[in-house]
Amino acid sequence: MNWLRNLVRPKIRAISGRDIPEDLWIRCNNCSQMIFHSELTANLHVCPHCQHHRRLTASQRLSILFDDKRYEEIPLPKVHSDPLQFRDVKRYSDRLKDAQQKAKRTDGTIVARGTIDDILVVSVCMDFSFLGGSMGMSCGEAILLASQTAIDSKAPLLAICASGGARMQESMLSLVQMPRSVIAINRVKQAGLPYLTLLTDPTTGGVSASFAMLGDVAIAEPGATIGFAGKRVIEETTKQKTPDEFQTAESLMKHGMVDVVTHRKNVKKTIAQVLRIMLKRAPNA
């Protein structure tokens, strides 16, 4: 079937003759097939040909998760942008400014409160498109804020991870966010509230080695890269190629590291099902 679609689709475009903006068609970066933008949105940004789960921004993610795409965003405290005055080929403060202008927010992480299948849930959601979803001081504050909001609202906490790890340009100030994030989720657990994680592509480094791996229940999206060390670092250190199915959600499940790997269209339902039982509520009709 795939070869046929591949042939037919661009043809339709040619026949129609109208001026169709380039971004109406998107090429799948996994199977290289062309996908209609509207089809992709309807399919929750999963390729209809190969089921490749494309990365989502935090706001895209939250709107497909919360009922009626509605949620309340809790404003983050502002943090000093670059206390170390870090500079590589570019100033960190400039990198940050660019990312902030592009995203129109001060950090990629969003703290949101809303209902999922009528259950009040607080979520802290990372955004890979914002400096690789890296965890810096702002993200650490977001997780602490989400934890406090969950406790105050007596609501479960859902962490949605999408991160390459700690933010290098904040050095130790970012490394200490690992224990800080663990303190945050510990408080939720101690309050007797569920702490769920949704591990999306990618969840690695200091994020996976802290709050991401401590969920009461861990759900992962198919094909997501989840692990501690980067593939390149491993291959350079061990001078060996990593196996094919390495650090994927599926292989993590095989090795006992996540509970559920499920298609994006089932994620919301799975979260709601688990939470209902944990909160001792009747199943939703």
């Binding site: 690992m178 224990p179 663990v182 510990n186 991401a212 791996m213 692990g227 501690f228 990593t242 590291m257």
Partner: peptide
């Protein structure tokens, strides 16, 4: 740093570190 290796990853390096942090705190 922690060992970056295929087996360490498969045995849950990230989880092991996260768990050690949690233990230290408690």
């Amino acid at each position: 740093g922690a060992d970056p290796g295929v087996q360490s990853e498969e045995r849950g390096q990230a989880e092991a570190i996260a768990n050690a942090i949690e233990t230290c705190l408690n």
